[in-house]
Amino acid sequence: MKADNPLLPLAVTAFAVASLSLMDAFMKSAALAVGALTAAWLRSALATSIALPLWLSRGGRWPKREVLKLHLQRSVVATFMALTFFYAITKLPLAEAIAISFIAPLIALYLARIMLGETIRKEAIIASLLGFAGTLVIIGGKVGEADFDEETALGLASILTSALLYAYSFILIRRQSQVAGPSEIATFHSGVSVVLLGLAVPFLFEMPDRSTWIDLVAAALLTVAGAMAFAWAYARAEAQVLVPLEYSGFLWASLFGWLFFSEDLTAPTVIGTAIIIGSCWVATRRPRPAAS
């Protein structure tokens, strides 16, 4: 496949989504064992230990002030985005949490117009609406079954907060990927989280057991792989083209939720997923050039 092939950023984005969906499953297991904050902090510490040598081996240099500010801005957003998400998946089924988080690509699509000046194609608008409709089908089916106690309410509030932060993160990574390489982005992404979450560690830390450490190491590896893949892809394609591929994460969440936590698929889930797949197909279609 040629380096300038327009399908390559799409394939890399799909890989990133799959990697981070599997990471979510490992993190849910770890967060249930030691709490969301401990799990998030240890994942960031392990990911930094992986990403930092990669960056330094490529001749990593301290970024200029403007680039550093962008790194810090996205890393702070990503830190709280991840923490609220990991808390949410301890209260909600994995697939349901992913489905609700799909409002993020919809919001990001229009933030890309406002903040990046991207012209939104008709296909991208249709895709975003289709993908959102698919998530509503899934959520509607879940709402009919759910017991809305305090824990569920906290989980829903947390996942909605995470989704809003995730939408903003999409825009920041598009800017970030224009001025820094994937290994540098991954290093700052994890390193800043270590510092921020570390402020609460003395009060909330719980020591993991052996199986939880395995989950955390796997999550850290997948975090670095996903972060670098996203950075590479967003440096080569517009946000509106790549954002709808986030919807494929539900397919992975459904699979991993079933494998890891015995979470069943329902009819609304299957129907909503089919709509989401259709939205991805619509988004990735390019208009045919006019005949000369």
Rank of each mutant, 00 (worst) to 15 (best):
F102H: 03
I103L: 14
A104R: 00
A104Y: 01
P105M: 09
L106F: 11
L106G: 07
I107R: 01
I107Y: 00
L109A: 09
L111E: 05
A112H: 02
I114T: 08
M115A: 15
M115P: 06
R121W: 01
K122W: 05
K122A: 13
E123D: 14
A124T: 08
I125W: 05
I126V: 15
A127M: 08
A127W: 04
S128R: 09
G131C: 12
F132T: 07
F132C: 07
F132S: 11
L136C: 11
V137L: 14
V137M: 09
I139Y: 03
G140C: 08
V143P: 01
G144P: 04
G144L: 10
G144N: 04
E145Y: 01
E145R: 08
A146K: 09
D147H: 14
F148E: 01
E150K: 06
E150G: 05
E150D: 07
A153H: 07
L154H: 02
L156K: 01
S158T: 00
S158R: 02
I159H: 07
L160V: 04
S162K: 00
L164H: 08
L165K: 00
L165R: 02
L165Y: 00
Y166G: 00
A167N: 08
Y168K: 00
Y168T: 01
F170S: 02
I171R: 02
L172A: 11
R174D: 07
Q176E: 12
S177T: 04
S177F: 02
A180I: 09
P182C: 03
E184M: 13
I185C: 08
A186G: 12
A186C: 11
T187F: 11
T187M: 11
G191Q: 11
G191H: 15
V192K: 06
L197M: 02
G198A: 01
G198S: 01
L199G: 06
V201D: 03
V201H: 03
V201I: 15
F203H: 07
F203V: 15
F203I: 11
L204Q: 10
L204R: 12
E206D: 10
D209C: 07
R210M: 13
R210W: 10
R210N: 08
R210S: 15
T212A: 12
I214H: 14
A218Y: 06
A219H: 03
L221D: 00
L222V: 11
L222D: 08
T223Q: 04
V224S: 11
V224T: 13
V224M: 06
A225V: 13
G226D: 09
A227N: 15
M228V: 03
F230S: 01
F230V: 13
A231W: 12
W232M: 10
A233V: 13
Y234W: 09
A235S: 15
A235K: 15
R236I: 02
A237D: 10
A237G: 12
A237W: 07
A239G: 12
A239V: 15
A239K: 09
Q240N: 15
V241E: 06
V241W: 07
L242V: 03
V243F: 04
L245I: 12
